[in-house]
Design a protein around this nucleic acid. Structure first.
Length: 869
RNA sequence: GCGGGCGUGGUGGAAUUGGUAGACACAAGGGACUUAAAAUCCCUCGGCGCUAGCCUUGCGGGUUCGAUUCCCGCCGCCCGCACCA
């Protein structure tokens, strides 16, 4: 028996079948045990799983299986984020229906996930592209529309003038359409929006309560919401024949720098800009130029700062008789504040860039601590830090905050156009969530446009509004809009000929409530509130850091919107959140600089340098940098091949070992080999220990020192692995399991007597339980060899004897001037004075002191001794 | 451009969150077993000295009896930026 190698190819499908037949991971909603909901972000059905999925789902499965062993009723479901652009692109390229492509992909990926042996309740599987799912989304849309959570307004899109279609930001490359190559334009379109900005304050405040989230994710969300206190400030326009307007309202968070103002900046989309451009061809051309790039904020902010002098001037609000020019500037967003600013170049980098370009004055008004007011000047870098105000008459000497309140009071007391010149306002960067997409493969927005009755929701009895099957993608644009009959309907109110909304929803909507649907996936309402409220919030959610802002923020909003419409009874969907790192791999390049996939490369690692050659041609291959696995660099490893070669357990174990889960992990062939070897070591250890325990043992001697030492190691490992898994420190848990395995193997090889044999048997049994969450197939096989009844999947988490966790002695390092000079072993909890006496008596210490008297002796109980000389 | 993060031996990383830096693993080298290979087992393994010493957690400062951990400044890499999912 012990000579046989463990064969995952045989064992893994076997146990998967057993779990399936015994419905081991099917979860009942009426189970009385404490519920625990673990969820990994559901995948987009691209066709094949990648190593990122393997990592993500391995982690989630450890958590699920661990809590299951702890006696909880665990919900661990899986589904498909099945709407989206790639299916439409595939439809165009392969002349297939997006649905056909998507469902084929789902089948393929499901088979792959199943081969991983995940403890998933597949009876709860959902696909967002199924009418069974999206009809509920439509119903909630109607509820939310009625509740005033949805609005329609104009916003900008990327328009491809050749393909006559709206482009996603990722389809805009260097300002051009990815397919047509045409220069993209910004276009205004009336679109549907969720009013997430109404919840800005709530979403911000509630972050403090999300203690199970990484601090960095909360920080990112806080910054994204971007709450700021500022001043709305009216600038009087100097009368001009160009406009009838008498004032411009700006929003500023730095009213303290008003004496440093040197221009007014308007957004290219500001109404005043539009008015002026109507009679100013040069300005109109400038505005058009501003629109000749995509709508991505990144492009805008990276673009060179440009401005256009409108010729208008405003009166300086605090310097009598002075006026400031009014510019239109490309970096000013219409969506934020009032779409107009006052520029203070000395203390804002973008303003400074513009001022330098157009020769506007730069007047410093905040003096850095210690700087000389007479000589302080701003060069190419704006001064944005703290200091005291100067060059500002009645604000001189104040701190920035003091100056802000004083100037706010000052402007509050004055008036322009019969209104207060300034008023304090809280502003948020967070914009409403635009969900309209001019695409076929998404959830239809259930609305009908009637000439007579206006925009009215589809009656719930008529749901779902189903996507038509007979579509073709030959024509550019929205295939739903092109469909000959689909959009022509009768108004549900008046019966007149009307038109269906042909926009579909952003796929972020689909993923904003799937976690709730999983709690009752077959219900004929979106949720069963009682059931959802018992399961939610998700105890542990796991996914990529790339979703730290949008997906999580939208889900938090949508949960609130579902609460407002009676579908759930809570605000926050995710109690625990974890963001895992990426999977990386070395890159390889051939002679012509072409990327070579790892499967075509042989690494020669004997001696000093690692070199590589092509598997068939033998041509030398250059080993490149380690990068995120991507198709474009061909540095991908196919999970299917790994599972076929080494088995799922090896892949899972490797994904969990070594790298901390939040950091990137580098996939290496050597690492996988190591994981595979460990699998065999465990198998051998278990089989050997069964042989040993067959020998006559007699009575157990509980005071056997070796046995007690081993039991201590075993019980510490059990306690430690539990702590590690609960803190998602999978790599630490793995290291601990290695240590335990080493200790057990040593005991095995020592020809153990009865007491040690007992400890060994106990240790091996617990080892199998410890590896179960990570290598569940191997664990079942070992459990069987141990002669245990039932499945290890159904066995509980091993008990820990607390007496074995405590030590009565501690070894303290002894430092002299911070350098380690020796150590001393003393009873735990020994008083500092006693420790000091003993330590000072030691030879090593006397020698290190070299006759000098200690200035101070620091004794930290049970930790360290430091003698300062 | 703005916001967030990360950086420890040849490599992945550990360090009870201010208390013995390098646990555990991989790679490499040496040895055992074997006719041989694979598998397995044992030893060495941060650097310089190679003795009892010194240096070392991206770089440069600071706080502290003591810093991988806290603070300031740099460098490098990664993620997000609202229509990729």
């Amino acid at each position: 028996m012990s000579g046989e190698r463990y064969n995952p190819r045989e064992s893994e499908p076997k146990w998967q079948k057993v779990w399936d037949e015994q419905k081991s991971f099917v979860t009942a909603n009426d189970d009385p045990r404490e519920p625990y909901y673990v969820l990994e972000m559901f995948p987009y059905p691209s066709g094949r799983i990648h190593m990122g999925h393997v990592r993500n789902y391995s982690m989630g499965d450890v958590v699920a299986r661990y809590h299951r062993a702890r006696g909880k009723n665990v919900l661990h479901p899986m589904g498909w984020d099945a709407f989206g652009l790639p299916a439409e692109n595939a439809a165009i390229e392969r002349k297939t229906h997006p649905g056909t492509w998507t469902y084929q992909n789902i089948e393929a990926m499901k088979a792959q996930l199943k081969s991983m042996g995940l403890s998933i309740d597949w009876t709860r599987e959902i696909a967002t592209c199924s009418p069974d799912y999206y009809k509920h989304q439509q119903a909630m849309f109607i509820d939310m529309l009625a509740a005033g959570l949805i609005t329609r307004k104009s916003s900008k899109v990327n328009w491809d003038p050749v393909d006559m279609t709206v482009l996603a930001n990722e389809q805009v490359i260097d300002g051009k359409g990815w397919r047509s190559g045409a220069v993209v334009e910004q276009r205004e379109l009336t679109q549907w929006f969720f009013k997430i900005s109404d919840y800005a304050e709530d979403l911000l405040e509630a972050l403090d309560g999300l203690t199970g989230w990484p601090e960095k994710v909360r920080t990112m969300q806080r910054n994204w919401i971007g709450k700021s206190e500022g001043l709305r400030l009216l600038f009087e326009l100097v009368a001009s024949d160009k406009t009838a307007a008498t004032s411009v309202e700006v929003f500023t968070t730095r009213p303290d720098t008003i004496f440093g103002a040197s221009f007014i900046g308007l957004s290219p989309d500001h109404p005043l800009t539009t008015e002026l451009a109507a009679n100013n061809p040069a300005l109109a051309a400038f505005v058009a130029e501003c629109h000749r790039h995509g709508t991505a904020t990144e492009t805008l902010e990276k673009a060179e700062k440009q401005g256009f002098d409108t010729g208008l001037r405003v009166k300086h609000p605090v310097i009598e008789g002075e006026t400031l020019p009014v510019y239109v500037a490309n970096f000013i967003l219409m969506d934020y504040g009032t779409g107009a600013i006052f520029g203070c170049p000395a203390h804002d980098q973008r303003d400074l860039d513009l001022a330098r370009k157009y020769g506007l004055s730069v007047i410093p008004v905040v003096l850095p601590p210690g700087a000389d007011p007479a000589s302080f000047a701003v060069g190419d870098e704006a001064y944005v830090d703290a200091g005291n105000i100067f060059n500002s008459t009645f604000l001189d000497g104040l701190s920035i905050d003091e100056a802000k309140s004083k100037i706010a009071q000052y402007f509050g007391a004055r008036s322009v156009d019969g209104k207060p010149q300034g008023r304090i306002e809280t502003n948020y960067r967070l914009r409403d969530w635009g969900i309209s997409r001019q695409r076929y493969w998404g959830c239809p927005i259930p609305v009908i446009h009637c000439e007579v009755c206006g925009t009215i929701p589809v009656p719930k009895k008529d749901l779902p509004v189903v996507l038509p099957e007979d579509v073709n993608f030959d024509k550019p644009g929205n295939a739903l809009d092109h469909h000959p009959t689909w959009k022509h309907v009768h108004c549900p109110h008046c019966g007149a000929a009307a038109r269906r909304e042909t926009d579909t929803m952003d796929t972020f909507v689909d993923s904003s409530w799937y976690f709730a649907r999983f709690t009752a996936p077959q219900a004929d309402t979106p949720t069963i509130p009682d059931v959802a409220n018992r399961w939610l919030p998700v105890d542990q959610y796991i996914g990529g850091i790339e979703h730290a802002i949008l997906h999580l923020l939208y889900s938090r909003f949508f949960t609130r919107a579902m609460k407002a419409t009676g579908h759930v009874g809570l605000d926050e969907p995710f109690k625990g959140m974890f963001t895992q790192g990426m999977v990386t791999h070395e890159t390889y390049k051939g002679q012509q600089g072409e990327w070579v996939p790892p499967t075509d490369v042989i690494i020669d690692s004997g001696g000093e340098a690692r070199t590589a050659r092509h598997i068939q041609t033998g041509v030398p291959i250059a080993i490149g940098s380690v990068e995120k696995m991507s198709k474009s660099k061909k540095n991908v490893v196919d999970p299917d091949q790994i599972v076929a070669t080494y088995g799922a357990d090896t892949a899972r174990w490797f994904m969990l070992s070594d790298s901390p889960p939040e950091r990137d992990v580098q996939w290496t062939e050597a690492g996988v080999e190591g994981a595979s070897r460990f699998q065999q070591r465990v198998w051998r250890l278990v089989n050997d220990s069964v042989e040993i325990s067959k020998q006559p043992t007699g009575t157990v001697a509980p005071d056997d020192a070796d046995a007690k030492a081993l039991r201590k190691i075993v019980h510490r490992a059990v306690a430690g692995v539990a702590t590690d898994i609960e803190g998602l420190g999978f790599n630490r848990a793995v290291a601990r399991i290695y240590e335990l395995t080493n200790a057990l193997a040593k005991a095995r090889d020592s020809q153990p007597g009865p007491a040690l044999a007992f400890a060994l048997a106990e240790g091996v049994e617990r080892l199998v339980q410890l590896i179960n969450p990570m290598m569940p197939h191997l664990a079942e096989s070992c459990w069987e060899v141990l002669g245990k009844q039932g499945l290890v999947a159904d066995a509980g988490w091993p008990e820990v004897d607390p007496a074995l966790l405590v030590d009565d002695e501690v070894t303290l390092p002894i430092q002299v001037n911070g350098k380690r000079r020796g150590e001393i072993t003393v009873p735990k909890g020994m008083a500092a004075a006693e420790v000091e006496t003993q330590v000072l008596a030691l030879d090593v210490v006397q020698k290190a002191l070299d006759g000098k008297t200690p200035k101070k002796v620091v004794v930290v109980q049970d930790r360290i001794v430091n003698i300062v000389v």
